[in-house]
C-alpha cells in the first residue's frame, strides 16, 4: 500500500480494515487494535469472521456476496449489532468495494459511536427524570388548586370558586334569557350538635350535608360552603320552575331526617331559601340577600312547627 495512504489510515480515528472477497484480512489499522485489543500482526491473513465472530452470521456473508457482485455499499448499525468488535465499543460498520489492480478489495469502516450511545442514554435519563418531576409538579398544582378553590373540610367549592362561577353563570343567564337559581341553606341547630356531640362529630355532619347537596344537584350546579353552617348552591340554566322543582324535591327528601354519626342518632334538618335571577335581583349580592331572607322565613316556620308539635 502507498506509504502516505498507510500513514493516513494509521492516524485516523476510525477502525479501518481491508479484506479480500474471501474474507482474508489484508489491513488492520491501529484504531482497530485499540478497539479490539488484537495486534495487526495477529490478524493479518486470518478470516475477518474468525477474528470478529459477530461477522460470522449468515446475513454478513450474504451482504458481502451482494457487495462483491453489485458493488453497492452496505451498512450495519451499532444499535442492531451490539457486539460487532467488542462489548465495550458500539460501532457502525460501512463496507465498500474498491477495485484495485484488477481485483476487488472490501473496505470496512468501523465508526466508534460509543460516546453517542452514552450521551443519548444520559439524555434519556434526564428526560425520564424531568418527566417524573413534571408529573409531580402537575399533581402539586392540582393540590394547590384544590386548596385555593375547595373547602378543606367538606371538599365542596369555597367562596373563591363560587364567585368565579357566579359571575360566569349570571352572564350566561343574561345572554341566553334563562333563569339562575341561588339556594341559601343553613343547618338547623348546628351549634347544638357541636355542643352536644363535639366538634369532631359536628365536622362530619357538615361533610355529610355537603355530600347530600352534591348528590341532589346536577353536574354543573355549584355547591359552596359559604360560612360555618351555611351553604350556597348555584343552579344555572333554569328554563322554568319545573327544572328547579326536580332538584328541590331531591333535596327536600333528605332535608329532615335522622342520621347516625359516630354512634349518635342525630336529627338533621336544613332551612332553605331560593332566589332567582331575574325575578329576585340582577346581581349575585342581591340574589344571596334575597335567598338568605327566604331561608330565614323557612327557618322561622320550621321552629314554629316544632314548637306546635
Amino acid at each position: 500500500m502507498d506509504s502516505m495512504l498507510s500513514g493516513i489510515l494509521n492516524c485516523i480515528n476510525e477502525g479501518i480494515v481491508m479484506i479480500t472477497e474471501d474474507l482474508m484480512i489484508t489491513y488492520w489499522n491501529p484504531f482497530m487494535e485499540k478497539m479490539t485489543g488484537r495486534r495487526s500482526e495477529e490478524v493479518l491473513g486470518a478470516r475477518i469472521d474468525h477474528i470478529l465472530p459477530e461477522l460470522g452470521r449468515p446475513f454478513f456473508h450474504s451482504a458481502i456476496r451482494g457487495l462483491s457482485a453489485g458493488g453497492n455499499p452496505v451498512f450495519f448499525s451499532a444499535a442492531m449489532h451490539r457486539n460487532m468488535v467488542s462489548p465495550e465499543h458500539r460501532v457502525n460498520l460501512k463496507i465498500n468495494r474498491i477495485a484495485t489492480n484488477g481485483q476487488n478489495i472490501l473496505l470496512l469502516e468501523f465508526m466508534d459511536v460509543t460516546n453517542q450511545f452514552q450521551r443519548i442514554k444520559q439524555l434519556q435519563t434526564y428526560v425520564g427524570q424531568l418527566s417524573h418531576l413534571n408529573t409531580q409538579l402537575k399533581q402539586k398544582e392540582k393540590v394547590i388548586e384544590k386548596l385555593a378553590y375547595y373547602d378543606k373540610l367538606t371538599g365542596v367549592a369555597n367562596r373563591a370558586l363560587f364567585d368565579k362561577f357566579a359571575d360566569k353563570y349570571l352572564n350566561e343567564a343574561k345572554k341566553t334569557g334563562t333563569m339562575l337559581g341561588l339556594m341559601f341553606i343553613d343547618v338547623n341547630e348546628f351549634k347544638q350538635i357541636n355542643d352536644t356531640y363535639g366538634h369532631n362529630t359536628g365536622d362530619k355532619v357538615m361533610t355529610r350535608v355537603a355530600s347530600l347537596l352534591t348528590e341532589s344537584t346536577r353536574k354543573n350546579d355549584i355547591v359552596c360552603r359559604y360560612g360555618g353552617d351555611e351553604f350556597l348552591v348555584l343552579l344555572p340554566g333554569i328554563h322554568s320552575l319545573d327544572d328547579y322543582q326536580h332538584i328541590a324535591e331531591r333535596i327536600e327528601d333528605n332535608k329532615k331526617r335522622h342520621i347516625v354519626q359516630d354512634g349518635y342518632d342525630l336529627w338533621l334538618s336544613l332551612s332553605i331559601g331560593i332566589s332567582f335571577y331575574p325575578d329576585d335581583g340582577n346581581t349575585i349580592s342581591e340574589l344571596i340577600e334575597k335567598a338568605d331572607e327566604y331561608m330565614y322565613y323557612n327557618k322561622q316556620q320550621s321552629r314554629e312547627q316544632q314548637n306546635q308539635l
Partner: peptide
C-alpha cells in the same frame, strides 16, 4: 442518531 442509524440500515 441511534434511531437514524437503525432506519438507515
Amino acid at each position: 442518531d441511534i434511531d437514524f442509524d437503525t432506519v438507515k440500515e
